[in-house]
Design a protein around this nucleic acid. Structure first.
Length: 293
DNA sequence: AGCTCTTCCTGAAAGC
DNA sequence: TGCTTTCAGGAAGAGC
């Protein structure tokens, strides 16, 4: 579900309600998506949340140990990835608990920070302060903090399809399937083109498109395709501005051709066949038989 | 080494 | 109606 703009929306919501509050206890449901559930249950009580940040699609809760914490000399952060269906937010204990809510962090003021994740593709892990820089270094650059020259350098000479590289979190962090397609549509680049074959002008258009799409999507509080809601439970608005993603068979806003869907980099990819011309080797593209309208 | 494909899980929607 | 298939906002790990 969540890509950079959705995670940023969640983080901004949490930032207004979490800092300064202390975890008093942890209740766990299914734990197969938690790296070390025993440590989560034992080490988090007595730790105070100081800040909420985003690293790509990861949420980082900076923690400080109070004297009540076990191993207070061990400096830990709580790092959470929402996967496809994760949600994180603060509720009162009497509020209804949605199905698939697997983690409750109970706070000193009686509220609870809840993690809900239908498919459990998310991740929860504890990262020591001494490891957090290494953790972040394994990810690529934040696309909104990237200069054009660095953007070009990261893609230079790469033989992979541009869409695969945009989705690769070690190249850029935070871009997912929706915003890759939206950016490529704006830049008029076919998702199956090889990065090494893109011109300097192509790359500049793509860099600008990514910035514009992500900034606008953050402003609109993300895309709510089926069920994304922010930390307060409100949907985003950016889905109303999608130009390619999810629009198979509908007309291109630019040229009127019908948007197509194909599998690129293992993911559904939506593009305009007229504005975003296919690369020369058509075997690289697996067309999906057109569904009847 | 670099890239692509399959798999993990649950539920909604489409197909038959 | 009801059963089966396909697909979903992610990404580690297997395979080429």
């Amino acid at each position: 579900m969540p890509e950079l703009p959705e995670v940023e929306t969640i983080v901004r919501g949490l930032r207004t309600v979490l800092p300064g509050h202390t975890i008093t206890s942890v209740r766990l449901g299914k734990t197969d998506f938690i790296e070390d559930p025993v440590a989560v249950g034992e080490l988090l009580p007595g730790r105070r949340m100081e800040a909420v940040d985003r690293m790509g699609k990861f949420i980082r809760l900076k923690l400080n140990a109070t004297p009540e914490a076990k191993h207070p000399d061990k400096h830990l952060d709580l790092v959470i990835h929402l996967g496809m269906t994760g949600w994180l937010g603060v509720r009162r204990p009497e509020d209804p608990v949605p199905p698939h809510t697997h983690v409750f962090f109970e706070l000193e003021d009686g509220r609870e920070l809840r993690y809900t994740d239908i498919r459990r593709f998310g991740q929860i892990l504890l990262v020591g302060h001494d490891e957090i820089d290494n953790f972040a270094a394994r990810l690529g650059r934040e696309p909104l903090e990237l200069l054009l020259q660095e953007f070009k350098a990261r893609l230079a000479g790469r033989q992979a399809r541009i869409k695969a590289l945009l989705l690769n979190q070690a190249v850029f962090r935070g871009i997912g399937n929706i915003y890759a397609d939206e950016s490529l549509w704006r830049a008029r680049i076919h998702p199956a083109r090889l990065a090494s074959r893109l011109s300097s002008a192509d790359l500049q258009r793509l860099w600008k498109a990514i910035r514009r799409v992500l900034q606008q999507a953050i402003e609109d509080r993300g895309s709510s395709i089926s069920d994304f809601v922010d930390a307060e439970g409100q949907p985003g608005e950016y889905q109303q501005k999608h130009r390619a993603y999810g629009r198979e068979g509908k007309r291109c806003f630019r040229c009127g051709a019908r948007i197509r869907r194909a599998i690129v980099a293992g993911r559904s990819s939506y593009f305009c066949p007229r504005c975003q011309p296919a690369p020369r080797a058509p075997k690289a593209i697996l067309e999906i038989p057109k569904a009847k309208t």
